[in-house]
């Protein structure tokens, strides 16, 4: 964990974003897929973890176990958690226990989608081409999707809710249940 963290911080110390993605993770930092809850929103929300914000009405809420060293809340550049070609939006930073509750727009086929910590480029600068490049770089270092059995065990039926408020409430509930970091309970 320490090696991964220091490597990530060393990258963060670079002056400018790299021209090509360098994953912070070789496929071992995201350790478990605990839950995957697809959802549908009657009222769309805006997806902002991208260079081109857009309204979305589907997504998936994920609960993961990951290297706590990569779940440190930072304002300086730090590695983003990617789900396929998309940076995930985090609801918490459990840098003590390693629980990560995040969401990405859906639908997502988790059986074929890698989840890993990518480069430290700001999400608002991530366009489609960069997302593809991140994923290619991750595959090159050995990042693979979770096994089908893990996905099947984690996957819940799709939720249909009125608005993203309900997804946030659900996410907070899961954070409260899983986090070991006190400040996660204060958000």
């Amino acid at each position: 964990m320490t090696v991964v963290l220091l490597a990530a911080l060393a990258r963060a110390a670079d002056d400018a974003p790299a021209d090509t993605p360098v994953p912070a993770d070789d496929g071992h930092a995201v350790r478990a897929l605990v839950a995957a809850i697809p959802f549908h929103l009657a009222t769309p929300t805006t997806w902002t973890m991208t260079a081109s914000p857009r309204p979305v009405d589907r997504g998936v809420l994920l609960e993961l176990r990951a290297d706590p060293g990569l779940l440190v809340p930072r304002d300086a550049a730090s590695p983003l958690l990617y789900v396929g070609e998309t940076p995930a939006f985090p609801f918490n930073w459990d840098h003590v226990g390693g629980c990560a509750v995040v969401w990405v727009p859906g639908p997502v086929d988790l059986g074929s989608t890698e989840i890993w910590f990518g480069s430290d480029r700001l999400a608002e600068r991530v366009d489609a081409a960069w997302g593809v490049a991140e994923r290619r770089a991750a595959r090159a270092v050995g990042v693979r999707p979770f096994p089908a059995a893990d996905v099947a065990a984690a996957l819940a039926p799709e939720l249909s809710v009125a608005s993203f408020d309900e997804i946030e409430a659900l996410a907070r509930k899961r954070v409260r249940a899983c986090t070991s970091t006190p400040e996660d309970l204060l958000r």
């Binding site: 902002t48 973890m49 991208t50 914000p53 304002d75 939006f89 985090p90 700001l122 999400a123 608002e124 600068r125």
Partner: peptide, 9 residues
């Protein structure tokens, strides 16, 4: 504040 995407957001 929606800081996760970055300061522009």
């Amino acid at each position: 504040n929606n800081t996760m995407p970055g300061p522009r957001t």
